[in-house]
């Protein structure tokens, strides 16, 4: 799995109310996604492009269990979230819908707009302009299985022979 895109940089504690605000939760996934991160960056939903990579600080996705927090990022085409650390429910939700999430602290290393290339199978991250390189923590095999199946629903379908 290779993901290449521009960096969007956020700080610590990006919570689920910032990712999927309650007042927009009745909207369609596409409508809700237009409000993703607007409290901290009003232009994000308008300007993010498929494959772009969200880089953030500690405790990304804290708060609610709402899966829409991860779905909104995926709906906007975000290719991966690279954060110093994740809240547990968000982390599971992202894996379950097939959005790659990697615990790595890049907030001091990269700048907004940097093009990053992420190779999940090889466990590497590269910045294209200068070849800056990092090794990623290996993911547990059962999580790679879910991501490779395309998410937990897809994996359930396979198991049920559908």
């Amino acid at each position: 799995m290779i993901i290449e895109g521009r960096t969007w940089l956020f700080g610590d504690k990006i919570d689920t109310d910032v990712l999927a605000p309650g007042y927009a939760m009745k909207l369609s996934p596409e409508g809700l996604a237009q409000h993703c991160l607007e409290a901290v960056d009003p232009d994000f939903a308008k300007l993010v492009k498929p494959g772009d990579i969200v880089v953030a600080g500690a405790n990304f996705g804290l708060g609610s269990s709402r899966e829409q927090a991860a779905i909104s990022l995926a709906t906007l085409g975000v290719g991966a979230v690279l954060a110093k650390s994740f809240a547990r429910i968000f982390y599971r939700n992202a894996i379950n819908i097939g959005l790659p999430v990697v615990a790595i602290d890049l907030t001091q290393e990269v700048a907004p707009g940097d093009i990053l290339k992420l190779d999940l199978a090889a466990g590497t991250l590269t910045r294209l302009k200068d070849g800056y390189h990092r090794e990623l923590q290996p993911m547990p095999p059962h999580i790679i299985d879910i991501l490779e199946a395309g998410g937990l629903m897809a994996q359930l379908k396979q198991k049920r022979g559908l």
Partner: peptide, 30 residues
């Protein structure tokens, strides 16, 4: 397992109770 982040409330009764997202709870439901 609860589809809500405040599911840990049930821990007051000596339960392990944790919140899960909707795909996780779907898989549990099945």
């Amino acid at each position: 397992a609860g589809g809500d982040s405040h599911t840990p409330t049930a821990g007051a009764f000596g339960c392990y109770a944790a919140g899960f997202g909707a795909t996780d709870t779907t898989a549990i439901a099945i």
